[in-house]
């Protein structure tokens, strides 16, 4: 057993990751080899230094932010947007709708970004009324939506915002379908990619 062989196994020796026989053979070598013992000691110190590194404390809201994003992802979208059933509609649903309309109106005045909508699968434009409503996002698609869409040829639907659009029924909104690739890494595409899609969609809309 020469020094080169021993030194190539010193970390594993240090970690007790060798077989019992090999561990003993290296130990025997170390008892009579100053050079290899010195090498071992420097590796031991390195390991100890790493073990003694202080634990880094994250910001207090880190876990909370993960949970918030999970909550946003977990919403099973299609079940949430059934058409209103007039017989079962309660006063608070009207109140909620009113509050939402006010919030949208406020949002439309404060948010400069163009809104667009993403569907979770290829759909015909006539079926977009309930599908589009759940996945609106200001910048780029929700990761959950993309995840569902990644195995499909997804469809991005641009909805032109106008004062009328806020009060119009979803089915009557002007939409432009834009295909994006079925790519498992879609969610990692930069915002610029989605911005380009939106700009293209907008120009298509304008030229109509």
């Amino acid at each position: 057993m020469n020094c080169r062989y021993v030194q190539s196994r010193l970390s594993a020796y240090l970690d007790f990751e060798l077989s019992g026989v090999e561990q003993q053979q290296i130990r025997n070598h170390l008892e009579q080899c100053i050079e290899c013992s010195r090498e071992l000691e420097s590796l031991r110190i390195t390991k100890v230094l790493l073990q003694q590194l202080p634990v880094v404390v994250p910001s207090s809201r880190g876990a909370e932010r993960v949970l918030q994003r999970l909550q946003a992802q977990a919403a099973p979208a299609p079940q949430r947007f059934r058409m209103l059933n007039w017989r079962r509609t309660r006063w608070w649903q009207f109140a909620g709708g009113f509050a939402l309309a006010v919030a949208l109106a406020f949002w439309s005045r404060t948010e400069p970004e163009r809104p667009f909508y993403v569907t979770s699968s290829p759909v015909s434009l006539t079926s977009l009324s309930s599908e589009t409503a759940f996945s609106r996002t200001n910048f780029f698609p929700h990761q959950s939506t993309l995840h569902r869409a990644s195995s499909l040829q997804g469809v991005l639907v641009y909805v032109h915002r106008s004062p009328q659009a806020l009060h119009a029924s979803p089915a009557s909104l002007p939409v432009v379908p834009v295909a994006y690739p079925a790519d498992p890494l879609l969610e990692h595409y930069p915002a610029s990619y989605w911005n380009t899609l939106i700009i293209n969609a907008e120009s298509t809309f304008s030229s109509r």
Binding site: L14, R27, I34, L40, L49, P54
Partner: peptide, 29 residues
């Protein structure tokens, strides 16, 4: 490195002096 004497093996546990790392050392690591 420089030559030095042999060490006792295989006691790899950190000694009390190794328990505290200065900030300077932590940053270097």
């Amino acid at each position: 490195g420089e030559e030095s004497a042999t060490f006792d093996l295989p006691d790899f546990t950190p000694s009390p002096m190794e328990q505290v790392l200065s900030k300077e050392y932590s940053e270097a690591i």
